[in-house]
């Protein structure tokens, strides 16, 4: 699904990301872990063509992302609050995204109904604009919005941060369900090793922009990772 080759990103001579080769097959649930400044968000931003690579390129479904825009039709992503439109209500936001992804109102409604539990009654019909919601509730809206239009590639940056424990476990359930679908590739980044291990088939650890671990998840993975990140 995703091929990365010779990719690097430099800011004023400092290399913040340098990945020679990375391949993520279709249907995999892929976890990216690392400390602050390891290059997780930089990688996702490159993947979404929000920043320009210094060298190399990324191909998503054989489409080179920085030259062709067709990847947008099968990619759903949520990096941070700048993916939300503050002056809309959650419902309006979902319908707006739905419109852009050529989904009609009924499709969006069906999706929202499926995730009613995840919203925990705090999102819909609350007469609040997105800008007035709490960080955690904003995140819930953003995550569900990525699912609109059944994208084949879902990118979530730090989805577990700011969420309450109940919501975290519900989110894990959602991600696992997505991962079971062989057509859907999920990319998740996190500081939290345990959450990532629980939902991902494969985990890549980044450190200062380099890939330092690349492991298929097994029982020992968590220990291995904890050992690695322990000082």
């Amino acid at each position: 699904m995703i091929q990365v080759s010779q990719l690097s990103k430099k800011y004023n001579g400092t290399t913040v990301l340098n990945i020679d080769n990375l391949e993520i097959p279709k249907g995999q649930s892929f976890g990216l872990v690392g400390n602050n400044g390891a290059g997780k968000t930089t990688f996702f931003s490159l993947l979404l063509d929000l920043i320009q690579p210094s060298t190399g390129h990324i191909k998503s479904n054989d489409i080179q992302v920085n030259t062709n825009e067709n990847w947008k039709s099968f990619t759903g992503s949520f990096l941070d609050e700048s993916f939300l439109i503050g002056y809309l209500t959650p419902e309006e936001y979902f319908y707006f995204i739905g419109d852009l992804r050529h989904q009609n109102k009924a499709d969006v409604d069906a999706l929202l109904a499926r995730h009613e539990e995840f919203f925990n009654g705090e999102i819909l019909k609350n007469k609040k604009y997105l800008r007035d919601l709490s960080k955690g509730n904003q995140k819930k809206v953003g995550i569900i919005a990525t699912l609109i239009g059944n994208p084949e590639l879902i990118i979530l940056d730090e989805p577990f941060a700011n969420l309450d424990p109940t919501t975290v476990s519900r989110l894990k359930k959602i991600i696992r369900e997505l991962a079971e679908d062989p057509n859907v590739t999920v990319l998740v980044s996190s500081h939290d090793l345990q959450h990532t291990v629980e939902v991902c088939d494969r985990i890549v650890a980044l450190n200062k922009g380099e890939i330092v671990k690349d492991i298929q998840t097994s029982k020992e993975t968590l220990q291995e990772l904890e050992l690695f990140f322990a000082v």
Binding site: D49, I85, I97, L100
Partner: peptide
């Protein structure tokens, strides 16, 4: 501007 990144990743 506050949601420009969203606009750039949607199929617009």
């Amino acid at each position: 501007s506050s949601y420009y990144q969203l606009m750039m990743t949607q199929n617009i």
